[in-house]
């Protein structure tokens, strides 16, 4: 995986996992790889991997069961909320870009409609 070296790597890996959770690639209750395996799979420092799980847990997206490992939350509401968060993040990025290009709100909406047809 290619990282943007200017933004925190834990955040980039976390975003990948969040997307996996929302898309169902990692369904509720799914066991996540251990810290070292995550580090190897994503080619990141083990401390960064630990940080990823800490943040995911803080966000209530996964839980660590002692001696068993880390699992994706089974809280459907939390996952639904995450879906919205990710969607909002994408919209924010999109609107930032449109603003930069000098396209109005209406113009952007029109563009989306045209694209869909």
């Amino acid at each position: 995986m290619q990282y943007d070296p200017n933004s925190p790597i834990w955040l980039q890996v976390m975003t990948v996992l969040e997307t996996d959770i929302v898309t169902g690639k990692r369904p509720p209750g799914d066991k996540l790889p251990g810290g070292r395996d995550l580090a190897i799979a994503f080619s990141i420092n083990p401390n960064t991997a630990v940080r990823v799980y800490q943040e995911l847990e803080k966000q209530g997206l996964c839980e660590t069961r002692r001696g068993l490992g880390t699992f994706v939350t089974e809280d459907a509401e939390r996952i639904a909320a995450l879906r919205k968060e990710l969607a909002l993040r994408a919209v924010r990025q999109f609107s930032d870009r449109m603003r930069l290009l000098g396209i109005s709100r209406e113009g952007a909406v029109t563009l989306i409609r045209e694209q869909e047809e």
Partner: peptide, 30 residues
């Protein structure tokens, strides 16, 4: 190589990598 290095990095170990290929190490070094 990155994979092997990460496999053996541990809480009680030190890994020092010298390289002029800076990008190769961005993600694996802390």
């Amino acid at each position: 190589i990155r994979r092997s290095i990460l496999e053996f990095a541990a809480d009680d170990r030190v890994l020092i990598l010298s390289s002029h290929l800076v990008e190769e190490m961005e993600a694996i070094a802390d």
